[in-house]
Nucleic acid binder design. Structure first.
Lengths: 72, 72
DNA sequence: GTGTGACTCAAAGTCCGTT
DNA sequence: AAACGGACTTTGAGTCACA
């Protein structure tokens, strides 16, 4: 099918998130556990497939010990 | 349940948005027109009532000529 | 020019699993 | 450890009439 799931914005955000998560030495599962979100959801965001909302952006940022602005 | 209308995160985001919009001398209506969103939607975000998602955050930022990170 | 409640509907987000 | 899919519930997106 169209391998175009997700906007460029989402893809960039996802790449940044993945990069920061890895730099903290956390797995998707562990991060998901810390911030109370689903592991498959975190994965989807990192792949740029999901349009994450404000509250969860901040939740994930706090769980990683960074500022929300670092994802942009 | 006891969902207050809007989290602290949303309220802070909304305040920042409103402040930036006003500094650009734009009304909610004008901004809404520029970014293709409804004026009542913009208003709801500014009041901290809505949990806006990534794509619309960037859309509004671009319409204001600022970076998305400026809202955080 | 803005606030607000109510509404529809698509998408956000969860939970189960297999690869 | 992560990608991916199906089925599910909840919430955001988008709009309107009225204050």
């Amino acid at each position: 099918m169209s391998s175009d799931s997700g906007s460029a914005i989402q893809k960039r955000f996802g790449e940044n998130l993945r990069s920061i998560r890895k730099s903290k030495g956390l797995s998707q599962e562990t991060l998901a556990l810390i911030c109370g979100l689903d592991r498959t959801y975190i994965g989807g965001v990192e792949r740029g497939e999901r349009n994450i909302s404000l509250v969860n952006i901040v939740k994930i940022a706090q769980s990683l010990g960074v500022e929300a602005k670092d994802f942009f």
